[in-house]
Design a protein around this nucleic acid. Structure first.
Lengths: 220, 220
DNA sequence: CGAAGGTCTGAATGATGGTTCACTTCTTTC
DNA sequence: GAAAGAAGTGAACCATCATTCAGACCTTCG
């Protein structure tokens, strides 16, 4: 043999793959899953349609990867806030909802694509899976709250499912257009979530999101 | 001219159209929108693929009609319970949620297709529209409740959106499999909805659903 | 350099499934 | 019964993309 893959090549390939996924995510956020044909996505990533198949076995596989990467990040962030966050379970829940909502509002197109837009069956299945994860995270914190008597007796799974559905519904619909209304929306959502979980009304805690969203802390 | 459409023919045509929509609904409930090809649907309705186009300009038009008919019924029922129902706004809300949930649980496949299953863009658009209607209905009753001081200050639209999303999420997911758990689910959902709206805990009212679901009253 | 083994390209291929249409089969009217 | 005008049929048609593949172009190594 006269050729063997060299580290440099591996890096280039991996970079190309990454770029493909990233660009595909942008396209999906922009025009939805339906508009993201292989040709279009490949062009956006600066490669030919054929090359896509160097990195993924099928379009569905690429779509799933796009979904996983974007959603994975959200689950991670939410989990971090809900679990490692400061304060009692109710505070963490409130904060988690806020962070989740703000992030979604900042990238509406992507949020819509991830949560609700028509998509491949493969993505649909993945969607269910990730919704289950959101639910599990919320359920955990609710369960904690119930255990220490901060929240009334309830089925945490159901409350968690409701929170997931409620937040999704509110964020996805073109309900709030002007960005300046976003803060009011987040506040309402926070209050609503607490009521859903049965927490007694309490004033919003002081934690400017910019300091507590793990993503921002890291990347800026 | 030697032929003019006669009332009998009109009736037959209308019946065929109805039958087509009804059968298409069954197919969709069974195998989802994706599996409901024109050929399959036509076969289910006992006609040829070509004949479908006698009644609808396109497959999308048929799909929209299927969606509208099924969802329209639900909006109607929910509206009736929420508006003309007996009791104060909170009671009506609780009852509305119960009826909605029970109906969905009775026809899971259809509920899933209407609320969440991947579908034509045309159906997706319609879906948004109908969600808006559910939301409007819930918002109205919440607004009433706030007005008379039964419910705390809140943005009724947002609470309503949350209720829609929450109920959808819970009903659609394969969370509850055994039918015997359905009643518990409905009870939890009822309690959850009241908490979401901020109603103080109160015991379930006595109204056996069989007597108060407008659909049953009428058809059985 | 040249051989070996990759990667990349983009036009051709193929599958799917909605839509059309020439033709057959009713219905109605005279 | 026959002509006129629909309605019904289903095989052929066609558009859309995902996927493939033969050849062009690169990278590595003796």
């Amino acid at each position: 043999m006269a050729y063997r893959e060299t580290p440099a090549v591996r890096r280039r390939l991996d970079a190309a793959r990454d770029r493909l996924v990233a660009k595909a995510t942008d396209v999906v956020a922009e025009v939805g899953w339906a508009g993201a044909s292989v040709t279009v996505v490949a062009a956006a990533a600066g490669m030919s349609a054929g090359s896509v198949y160097q990195h993924f076995a099928s379009k569905a596989a690429l779509a799933v990867e796009v979904f996983r990467r974007a959603s994975g990040r959200e689950v991670e962030v939410l989990g971090e806030v809900l679990r490692q966050g400061s304060g009692d379970p109710v505070e963490r829940l409130a904060h988690g909802v806020e962070v989740f909502a703000r992030r979604a509002l900042e990238r509406r197109g992507l949020a819509y694509a991830l949560l609700a837009a028509p998509a491949d069956p493969a993505v649909g299945a993945e969607r269910l899976e990730y919704r289950r994860r959101y639910r599990a995270l919320f359920a955990e914190v609710v369960r904690e709250g119930v255990a220490i008597g901060l929240l009334p007796e309830q089925d945490p799974e159901i409350t968690a499912a409701a929170l997931t559905g409620a937040i999704g519904e509110i964020l996805v619909d073109p309900l709030v257009e002007p960005t300046d209304a976003a803060e009011r929306l987040v506040a309402e959502l926070r209050a609503l979530s607490l009521r859903c979980a049965g927490a007694a009304a309490r004033p919003a805690h002081r934690h400017p999101s910019t300091m507590t969203d793990p993503d921002r802390r890291r990347t800026r």
